[in-house]
Design a protein around this nucleic acid. Structure first.
Length: 478
RNA sequence: CGGGGUGUAGCGCAGUCGGCCAGCGCGCCGCGUUUGGGACGCGGAGGUCGGCGGUUCAAGUCCGCCCACCCCGACCA
């Protein structure tokens, strides 16, 4: 096996993913099982994700804050479903400063409880509402099986927590944030996601309703890429988050929470990557354009580098890197930047100096087909247009792939076949937790979501045959 | 926690029946020639053979215990 090449996706998707993450220098394994180190290239991608989300949060009135990593154990126990959901995966601190603690502290698996506690202190009146706070941070969940980015013991994310005066407002907020996630995924990451509602058995521990954006990965498995929860009054009652309304009546608040994590990097990798490596959407790519100078002799070098500097100067609005390393050949650089998924490569050599041109190579279209030669004059506009085209084409390609792998089986036997080999099933569904569990046992597929966009009308439930009014997606998932 | 596997240079691996100085490829360092799709030559650096104990004149190699990691299952953003 050629050590220079990645394991092809078709041969072993899991190996392909693991090798890609490490060789593209996104992340590496930490000395603790299940933990990862996010390397500068991976973190830079995360920073661009953060910036895209953060501006959307701010634009809808949210403010950032920071809550502690440690939470008293007793806090978690105040909400019944919440504690049942998270207890098995808690990291617990029992010793501090060399002596046993009076009350164990948990390392936050999520912050509903400690934020709820604070909200109960901060909120007195309807005039204090709504409270719209987001936090960027890390959380710990002691998972059994881990994968880089997709499931690690510690991960980075944002968690928004809001409190409202009415159930309607809370639901509006929950859906507003789901829309923001959808907009971000589609328009920034070129990841076509399906927004929808989680079933009772798949919803967040402690939520009234959970919403999700579901993406299809390159192996057709589903990935939950972001979630938004309407918590009803569950946490408000557990933590006594109360306010006096206009009629001087004490009311419990209605709260929400919503999160998107470094897992999304896994979604980008598995939505767009190919056998050459990563393909990053231009809007999020740490480096949008790499310039590779090509020359043999010293006099060529001078002319080429002068042209490179001139071109680079015109591209100040983009994230551009010049790869002027002397110790590796251009061919090596091409492969390396393709591995790292840089959307656009500019080659400038003696021929380009002579013709006042540059060679453009699109990462999303490998080989000759993606290569073109353009004038150096007006290069900023050319590059800008090309990056927009790449962004749009990546979304179109991923959307097409997804749609080609969604099927509408006519009966449960066909459903089983599709879910095993081909992709997702889009079917009429009459809600029933036992039936859902049975499907999972039969096929390993779970109910990914009941999409917001419903066809209307009614049909026969794929499993029970009963009359159903909604359609749902089922798939194997990460 | 159950099943399977692997620990030898930074990475990937070989090491026969226990035997002298532990080896190969890639990478790394130096010099020179190269450079439009993963360059080549020459020289060099780099090892508690996962750990502890045992058998033996002699252990990377045989035995026992322990540890770590990976893959497959039960839990999950």
């Amino acid at each position: 096996m050629d050590e220079k090449k990645l394991t092809p996706k078709s041969e072993n998707y899991s190996d392909w993913y693991n090798q890609l993450v490490q060789r593209a220098e996104l992340a590496d394994y930490a000395p603790v099982r299940g933990c990862m180190v996010v390397r500068p290239y991976g973190w830079s991608l995360w920073e661009n994700i953060q910036a895209a989300l953060d501006s959307r949060f701010k634009a809808t009135g949210h403010k950032n804050a920071a809550f502690p990593l440690f939470i008293p154990m007793s806090f978690l126990e105040k909400e019944k479903e919440h504690v049942e959901g998270f207890s098995p995966e808690l990291a617990v601190v029992t010793i501090g400063g060399g002596s046993e603690l009076e009350e164990p502290l948990i390392v936050r698996p999520t912050s509903e409880t400690i934020i709820g506690y604070m909200y109960s202190k901060w909120i007195q009146s309807y005039r204090d509402l709504p409270v719209l706070i987001n936090q960027w941070g890390n959380v710990v969940r002691w998972e059994m099986r881990t994968r880089l980015f997709l499931r690690t013991l510690e991960f980075y994310w944002q968690e928004g927590h809001t409190a409202h005066a009415t159930a309607e407002e809370a639901e509006e907020e929950t859906l507003r944030m789901l829309d923001i996630y959808t907009d971000f995924a589609v328009n920034e990451a070129a990841v076509p996601v399906i927004p929808g509602r989680k079933s009772e058995s798949e919803k967040f521990a402690g939520a009234v309703r959970s919403y999700t954006i579901e993406g299809m990965m390159g192996d057709t498995k589903a990935l939950q890429a972001g979630t938004s929860h309407n918590l009803g009054q569950n946490f408000a009652k557990a933590f006594e988050i109360q306010y006096l309304d206009q009629n001087n009546t004490l009311q419990h608040c209605w709260t929400t929470s919503w999160g998107l994590s470094t897992r999304f990097i896994g979604a980008i990798i598995m939505t767009h990557g190919d056998d050459q490596g990563l393909i990053l959407p231009p809007r999020l790519a740490p480096t949008q354009v790499v310039i590779v100078p090509i020359f043999r002799k010293e006099e060529e070098q001078q002319a080429v580098m002068a042209a490179v500097d001139k071109v680079k100067a015109q591209l100040s609005e983009f994230r551009v890197e010049i790869d002027d390393r002397m110790e590796v050949t251009p061919g090596f650089k091409f492969n390396e930047w393709e591995l790292k998924g840089v959307p656009l490569r500019l080659e400038i050599g003696p021929k380009d100096v002579a013709k006042n041109s540059v060679a453009l190579a699109r990462r999303d279209i490998p080989g000759r087909d993606g290569k073109s030669f353009v004038p150096q004059d007006g290069i900023a506009e050319t590059v800008g247009n090309m990056l927009d085209t790449i962004q749009a084409d990546m979304l179109a390609k991923a959307t097409q792939f997804r749609d080609e792998h969604i099927f509408e089986p006519k009966d449960y036997d066909e459903f089983k076949e599709i879910v095993k080999n081909d992709g997702w099933c889009y079917v009429w569904w009459k809600p029933n937790a036992a039936n859902e569990a049975q499907i999972k046992e039969d096929t390993k597929a779970t109910l990914r979501c009941i999409p917001m966009d419903q066809p209307g009308g009614k049909g026969k439930c794929i499993f029970s045959g009963e009359e159903a009014t909604e359609k749902a997606y089922f798939a194997r998932a990460y």
